[in-house]
Amino acid sequence: MIVAGIDIGSKNIQVVVLEDGTVAARVSVASGFEQEESARKGIEEAAAAAGVTPADIEYIVATGVGRKAVAFTQHQVTEVAADAKGAFALNPAARTVIDVGADEARAIRIDATGKVIDFAVNEKCAAGAGAFVEAMSRALEVSLRRFGEISLESTESIPMNAQCTVFAESEVVSLIHSNTAQKDIAKAVHDAMAGRVSAMARRAGLENEVVIGGGVAHNVGFVRALKDTLGVGDLHVLPEPEYTGAFGAALIAAQKVAEGVPALNPQA
């Protein structure tokens, strides 16, 4: 049985193809302006990577903000449902799931069976998502990867005043002018964002184990800052964190097929 999950974000589209329950391919493409077209391209590339054709994919479940913009999927689920499913499958001990992407962040509390108990979302303010750190690394003219790394070298705690991405850019520029070390600025930026994400996580409720997914989980500086702010024993980064939602969607697709939901692939 071949199924796929597709996570259609405003910047990137992730596709996970499952063949008899194991991951056969993971592909990421840019969302671009024509989401439907990009989504099709994502499916084609993922099918090719899995050594099959799009027509071989029996069932596709979509998630992400753009899930409704794409006509060819059989079923859509919310990001919360997809994330919870994916994270729980990857780590059955997970009780709090934090997902931070470029444009949005969410925190979900799940029970021992993986069922969603509570969740909190931030999707409309860039200061609470990866876009914040990206903008600051640009202001500092440091690659995003390096930006996270150098923050680990700092032990300073400089509070940032600005709570908005736009105003924080000016604040970073003035920190540069006042000769603040890059690593200290980097830490200040990650701490500021961690504060916002952790407040959101607290609303959903913190319970061990706490896991983190989403593209921003690759940022070591952010992960450390979040771990410090949350004050939980450990913060487990999910494997291939940016695919958590797509993986969860693919698992739901597999479930649908197993339940015998008529699988009509409109592409076939």
């Binding site: 405003s10 302006f33 444009d103 409309k124 860039a126 876009a131 903008a135 908005c164 991405t165 736009v166």
Partner: peptide, 18 residues
């Protein structure tokens, strides 16, 4: 449609492209 300046900026450039 986006309130956030950061997202509104992407939206604005998207509208131009459209």
């Amino acid at each position: 449609s986006n309130v956030c300046t950061v997202f509104a900026k992407s939206e604005a450039t998207g509208l131009l492209k459209a």
